[in-house]
Each structure stands twice: as structure tokens, then as C-alpha cells.
Amino acid sequence: MIRSPRAWALEQNDRRIVFASGPEATMFAETRPFRVAQHRLPAWKAVLPIGGHAELLQPGQPMVTAPGLMVPPQLAHTCAATSPYIALFIDSWLLPYRSAPIRLDAGEVRRLLAALGTTDSDGAGTCADLTAGYSELQALTGRPRPLDPRVAHAIHLCTSRDPDMPITSIAHEVGLSSPRLRALVREDVGIALARLRRWGRLRTAIADLPDSTAALAAATAGFADQAHLIRTAQDFLGRTPASLRR
């Protein structure tokens, strides 16, 4: 179940995050066209322009353009939207594996925006209903296969419940050796457990950025320092934490 602990609103002339992350999904909005540098995100990304279109470029590949896009995890790419847009990040195991981006037509984008609570042409909304949005996404991609319960518990421990818990301790709690746990996570999710932990910390930091400095958000989320947060944001999102603040 995707949960949305706080309401969001897309404000005029505001270029940054307006929604705080939950355990399995993060959503934020841009109120103007925006482009991000090359990155690899360890989660699914839905780019939902409001009135424009999305552009995606992989190294050595022709540009992909569509009213909206769903980008699979770990795909190295640059991305842009030609209008205000909503970006929705969904943990990789919540949708079936794909190796290539999925083009969304205008009707699919409108349905997703409506499910997420976006009602106006400028993107103004009331409360993000990520559960409805997830149902719409599953209608487009199908249902994922269930995770091994040990993998699911390990991911919950290292990304949500106790992000500082050593992987050896996590492995012990789920009854596996550390190498076996790492291998099982890669087999089930396709992403290293350490990388998933960094993604969990980045989501926590993003949630704090509207009301905090980057240095304090980094410390609260468990990053070694602000530079570590900056490197992770650039690696995973193709942008700096400063671009996510007011």
C-alpha cells in the first residue's frame, strides 16, 4: 500500500518539492519546465507534464518524447518536461520489471493526474491519493510478482524502520548470511541493498528540505555530510538538493 502522510499543493512560481515522502513513494511538483542531468534512479519514475510533454534521452539512443513517461529503475538518462509537471517515484518492486521507458498518451496522463488529486490546468490540487495513483499505474503495467518475505522485511528495515542498522544485523534478523541476503535482494529487486538504503535516506532528506537547510536534512537522514547528500541527489535525481528548496 502506498501511503501519503501529508497533503500537497502545487503553488504558482514555485520550482520545488511540495510533497513529503512515504515509505514506498515520493511525489513532488515543478511549476515550470525543467530539465535534469543524467542520472540512475533506483525506483520507477512517472513524469506527468501538465499541458506539455516529457523528453527522455539515453546515451547513444534517439530521444523519446511523449505526453508522459514511465521510466524503469536504474535506467541512465536525462529527462525534461516542457511544462509544469508532477514527478512520482515508486519503489522498484511495486511494478513489474521493464528495461525500457513506457510512453503515456494524453488520456493516461490525465487519469493519473486526476487519481493523484490534481484538478486544475496549472496543477493545483488538494490531497495526493497515491493509492489511487498506484492502481492507475498497475492498470498500465500489470501487477508485480511478490517479494520474498525476507527481502521485504530487510528492505523495510534498512530504508524505513532503522536506516542505520548494519546489514549484518539485518541479515541475522531475517535468518540469512549477509552475502546471501545481498544476493537475494539483487535477485528479487535488481538493486543492491546499500543503494536502496541511500534512496531511503534521500527520500527522508527531500521530505525535510522545504523546512530545513541541506546540511541539517543530510544529518537527519543519516548522510555522512552535506556533500554525501549532494552526490546522492545528483546520482539518483540528476539535480542538487538546492534545486529542491524554496
Rank of each mutant, 00 (worst) to 15 (best):
E136F: 04
I167F: 11
H156F: 13
D188Q: 15
G125Y: 00
A87W: 02
I90P: 04
P42M: 12
R186Y: 08
R246D: 11
T204S: 15
L140R: 03
D105A: 13
L95E: 02
R246I: 05
T204N: 13
D225F: 02
F223N: 02
R15N: 11
D188A: 14
A205G: 08
R246G: 07
R182W: 01
A218I: 03
F28E: 08
H228F: 02
D225I: 10
I90S: 07
L112Y: 04
R15I: 10
L116E: 02
W44N: 00
E108Q: 15
P149L: 10
T119R: 09
Q12G: 08
G190L: 06
L69Q: 04
P72M: 10
R40W: 07
F89M: 09
E30N: 15
S135H: 14
H228V: 01
P179A: 03
H53K: 12
T204P: 04
D120E: 13
A124D: 06
T82W: 06
Q138I: 08
A43L: 02
A80D: 03
A192Q: 12
R203S: 08
G142A: 09
R6N: 12
R201W: 07
F34R: 10
P84F: 12
I86P: 02
V151C: 09
P84S: 13
R15F: 07
L113Y: 01
P144R: 10
E136S: 08
R186A: 09
A139H: 13
R3V: 13
P149E: 13
L95R: 03
A183M: 11
A205C: 07
A106I: 12
R198Y: 08
A242W: 07
A29I: 04
A87S: 14
L10Y: 05
A221E: 05
R35G: 08
D235P: 03
T131I: 14
L48E: 03
T31Q: 15
V174N: 02
D122L: 11
W8I: 00
L202H: 03
T220L: 14
H77G: 02
R197P: 09
I90K: 06
A154S: 11
G22K: 11
L209T: 01
L196T: 14
L157R: 10
F89A: 06
T213D: 09
A152H: 13
R180Y: 05
L94Q: 07
G200F: 11
R103W: 01
R110K: 15
N13V: 07
S243G: 01
V151I: 15
D105L: 12
R195L: 12
Q226D: 10
A215N: 00
P84L: 08
P149K: 07
Q74D: 12
W199H: 14
A76R: 12
M63K: 13
P146R: 09
A192V: 07
L116A: 03
S178F: 01
R197D: 13
P166H: 13
L94V: 06
P73A: 09
A124W: 05
A43E: 04
P23S: 15
R197T: 10
A115T: 10
T65K: 15
I155S: 06
L196A: 13
G238A: 08
P210E: 02
A183W: 11
A217I: 09
M165A: 06
F28K: 05
V151A: 07
M165F: 11
A66R: 00
P210T: 02
T240V: 01
A124E: 06
L116P: 00
I230D: 06
L140P: 00
L157H: 04
A214I: 02
A43S: 15
